[in-house]
Each structure stands twice: as C-alpha cells, then as structure tokens.
Design a protein around this nucleic acid. Structure first.
Lengths: 125, 125, 125, 125
DNA sequence: GTGGTCTAGACCACG
DNA sequence: GTGGTCTAGACCACA
C-alpha cells in the first residue's frame, strides 16, 4: 500500500498517515492480520521522521485498528476488534460543522448524501 | 445566540466560534443582515480574548459569511453571497477519513446517512 | 453629481467621498468654479456623518482641488491650481504594489496599460 | 532579500511586508520554491513583532503567493498557483482614483503609461 | 526550531 | 464605541 504525504497540507503528517491507513483497512487494501512496515521502514519509504510514524502507529493502536506484536510488528486487527458502535454518537459533532458550511454554500442534502454514498461504496467491497 | 466554548477541546477556540456562528446562520438563528456582537462584547460574554474573537470574525469574513459594515459592525451576509458550489469538490477529502473510521467501527451506510439527514433537517427550516 | 457610498467597503467613507469628487472633477462632471453642497447638505444627502464630509472637504482643500469661500462655500478650483507635476514622482510607489500583484497573477503589461487607457479616456473629454 | 519598513508610513507594517515580498517575487529576487525566513527570524531582522510578520505571511498564503511547507517553512509558490486572471476585474477600481488625481494634476496619459511600463519592465526579466 | 494559538494591554482610524 | 494594528510574552503541536 502506498502512502502519499502532502507536506503543504495543513493536516499534520501523522494524521495523514493515520487516515490513509484507516482508509486502507476500510477498502481492504490492508487485510486483517497483515503486518504494516516497521516504523523505521515506513519512515524511510515516505521520507518522513521516525517519530512521526511512531505517533501515527500509537494512535492507530489506541483506537483499536492495529496491535503491536513482539514478533510480527504492527498488525491489522480483526474488524470485530474495531467495532465500536458508540462511535456513532461522536459523528454528529464531527460532521455538523461541515454540513452547516455546505448548507450555507448551497449544497443540497441530496448532493451531500450522494457524496457520502460514493465514499461508502469504495469501502463496501 | 449563545456560543459555548469548550476550553478542553483540541479544536482551537476561534474555530469553535466560527463553527457555531456558521451553524447559527444555517439554522436561521442568525438571519441575513443581523449584526453580530462586537469583538469586545462577544469576547467578554464568552470569557475569551478579544483577538481570538477577531480572528474568528476575520475567517468568517474571508469565507463570505459576514461583512464589516461601517455603521452596523459585523453583519451576516445574504445566503447568495455565501453560495460557492465549488465547495462540493472539497467535501470528499474532508469526510473520507470520517467515513473510513465509521465504516471500520461498524457504522453502516444507512446509519451514517441518517445522521447526516438529521443534521440537515435542523437547517432546512 | 451623485455620490455613492459603500458602507461594506474597507476604504473609509471620507476617502470614498474624496475619490468620487476628484473623479467628478476629472470627468468634468464638476466644473471649475462650481460650488459643492454644504457639509450639512451632503451629509444628509448621502446619509453619513457631518464630520465625515468635513474631513473629506478638508483633504480636497489641502490637495488643491477646492477652495473654501466665505460666501460661495466649497468651490472647485481651476485646473491650473491643481497642477502639480511633482506628483508624478509619487506615482511609482503607489502603483508598484498593484503592478507587482497583477504581474504575478498573469496580467500582461499590454492588458494593464489597456485598463489604464480606458480610465484615462473617460477623463479626457 | 532586504525588506525595509517605514514606521512613519500610514500603510500598515504588515502590508509593507506583503508588498515588498510580492515585488520580490515579481522581480525574481525570490524564486519559486525558495524558503522565506521564519517569522521570528524576519521579525528580528527588520525589528518588528513576530505577530506582524505572521499576519503578513498569512495574507501571502491566503492570496496564493506562498504555502507552508512542513519541513521548509514558508516557501514561494509557482507562478502558476498565483495566476488569477479575474484579478484584472479589480484593477480599474484600484487605479481609477490614482489616475483621476494624476489627470487633475496634469499628468498626461502618455506619462502615466510610461511610469507603468517602467515598473513592468523591472519584472519581466 | 517551526508555525499556530491564546492572552493582555495599548494606540489609532473611523464615524 | 467600533474594528484595525502593533507589541509582548507564553504555551503547544509538529517534525
């Protein structure tokens, strides 16, 4: 899986790494039990600092996406370990600002839901 | 309109102010032509620094939500001035990470769209 | 002559008044010897503060565009009284920032000069 | 590149900084991809406050002249990112007052265009 | 060490 | 009294 960093972006590099790995898991590019590259390896591959990768991996572990194995390194968890139905309670406060802005800028509900569906469909397979 | 700041939140205070005002506009709590409180007034009301409010107002102005009126102070723009259909192109990159995480955590598309609809319906009126 | 104030503009009201009167003189809408409305009158006409009009008139007088007569009030000077060939030395520093920005944004010299000519031609008649 | 601030000028310090950097870009004194000094460095160099420089940089970023690179700091954008042909529509209202004043003070169109050309020619190289 | 955020207090231009 | 500007000093997130 290829991770692409935008150094100009205002989202921190470690967040970009976290997001892309989660997206990789969601789209089955990364499958359960698969090992991620070592901190050192990934850092070298994408040309960023080791500490940055480390931080990304820590967050992924904290949020239940990966587990740190002594031998196998960082491995992708089973989906069942990620399940966290209470996450739905956090969704409104995350997307409310986006929707408010979209609404003011003339994006209709239908258009917005359509965008969400498009993204969802890239994950279902 | 009451603005509530969470000082513990990791989202900057000025962003919280911006978001809540946009939500106020979307929900018609703030109507076109209405004056917002002065920077000093709002700062005092919510117990933050004047400059923080100023930054929030500057962003709102930059993004077309308000304008500075030489007599009325900061006033809410007409919706037509906020319209910016190209914003829809930015939506996917904003919500993709959220949806990926939601997907992994077992939130179905239907559940997610439902949450979005609920928020949208608070704005349509 | 009709003066139009944009209360949303970031240029001060008194500057807008000054500019429009100068443009009126340049375009011969206001001719030499003509009286401008009284401070009180103009303020009422365009719905602004008397002090603001006063400031505008003071600047126009300082820069040689009008003279304050005891009886006739504020009258437009003869062009010969405005002539100030040393003004050309101030032009570069005024327009350099504009041209630099225009240049970076892809406006060619020809396009820029053409815009200037168009404005000049509204004055020559 | 040397930035010179006139503390007596009525144009805000941050605007002076912005203008001089744009002129530096236009004249190729600052080239694409080059890093600008850090906010603290530049502030110290020209003897002003860090926040003033910060504001200048924010404006330059907003207007597409520079971007924040997570490693290189503030870097000059490619010209293609600054291109904004709609800027030409803003030019008349910016220069109309200048030309009106110049006209009244006896500057001919030829003289004025000549001044513009001189400035343009310092950028074309 | 970088930019980003926040606070605090001061002065000014404007109306 | 309004927003705009500037200064000063502090802490934090990031890399």
């Amino acid at each position: 899986m290829i991770i692409k960093i935008d150094l100009q972006s205002e989202t921190p590099i470690y967040t970009q790494v976290v997001n892309q790995i989660i997206e990789g898991i969601a789209s089955k590019t990364l499958v359960e039990g698969e090992s991620l590259p070592s901190v050192r390896q990934l850092a070298e591959d994408i040309g960023i600092n080791m500490h940055t990768v480390n931080k990304a991996y820590s967050i992924l572990r904290r949020d239940g996406f990966v587990t740190i194995h002594r031998r196998k390194g960082v491995v992708v968890n089973e989906f069942s370990n990620m399940y966290n139905s209470s996450f739905i309670k956090e969704i409104p406060e995350i997307i409310k600002p986006v929707i408010a802005e979209a609404f003011c800028k003339g994006i209709t509900e239908k258009e917005f839901l359509n965008e969400c569906s498009k993204i969802y469909s890239t994950f279902k397979t």
